Simulated assay, not measured.
Amino acid sequence: MAENILRSEVLDPYAQALMSLGKSNDLTDRFAEDVGNILDTLNGSQDLKDFIANPLAKGDLKREVLSQVFGDAVHPFMRNFIMLLVDRRRVMFLEGICQQYQRLYRKLKQAVLAEVTSTVELNDDQKNAIREKVIAMTNANSVEIETKIDPELIGGVIIKVGSQVIDASLRGQLRRITLRLSSSN
């Protein structure tokens, strides 16, 4: 419930505003690239996430740090957007706003996100095979693949697209065999 309120009251309006700015200036693709880089940076630094979320850190200090971190790496409009979030004390939601922008961008581009969990890192051929399978399943124009490693799967992959889950892992197959055996007794 609190997540829905957060999404509707904070994340959606800011992500929509960023999308609107991107559309009116033909920058939706560039903003998507910037948002991806911002999320990569945040996911790579727990210290930065903690700093942004710290209510005791002054706005001027946050502005300075974020300018140094993102500086010329993002479009000037994106940099101004981040500074606006600092000024409005909403920068702690930067990650969620970026994730929401990605959802809006995928919808705009008729793309889907496939979350793939495997035991080892997938090579390009495997990713392309998954991409083609997901396009066939969903009729999407393109597929973004987000990978996670889980050695407990034993082998195979789990693919999640929206609410659909395809469990092609050995762990999942063993679980299904166990269920069949236990129900036949």
Rank of each mutant, 00 (worst) to 15 (best):
K127Q: 11
E152F: 10
L181S: 05
D125V: 09
K109G: 09
V134S: 04
N139M: 09
I135V: 13
E132H: 10
V161K: 07
K160D: 08
E132C: 08
S118T: 04
D124R: 04
N123D: 13
V165L: 15
R180C: 07
A114E: 01
G156L: 04
V116L: 01
L153D: 05
Q126D: 07
R171P: 00
V134G: 01
L170A: 04
L181T: 04
R175E: 14
V112N: 02
S183D: 14
R171E: 05
L122H: 09
T117M: 01
R175A: 13
I154P: 09
L179G: 08
L170T: 08
L179V: 11
G162L: 10
T178C: 10
G172D: 06
V116P: 03
K109W: 03
I145T: 09
R131T: 07
S183R: 11
Q164F: 14
Q164D: 15
I135Q: 11
I154V: 15
G155P: 04
N123P: 10
K109H: 11
P151N: 03
S169N: 03
V161F: 13
M137V: 00
Q126M: 06
V116C: 03
E121G: 12
L153S: 02
V112Q: 01
L174A: 04
V134W: 01
T147P: 08
R171N: 01
V120Y: 09
S142E: 12
Q110F: 12
S163N: 15
K127V: 13
I158F: 04
S142I: 10
V161I: 14
R175D: 13
S163G: 14
A111F: 02
G156F: 02
K148W: 00
E115L: 00
T117N: 00
G156R: 02
L181C: 03
K133N: 01
R176S: 14
V112G: 03
K133D: 00
L122E: 07
K109A: 11
N128Q: 14
N123T: 07
V161L: 12
I158E: 02
R180N: 12
L174Y: 06
R180Y: 09
D124S: 08
G155M: 10
R131Y: 07
I135P: 08
V161G: 12
N123K: 03
R175G: 11
E121Y: 07
E132Q: 13
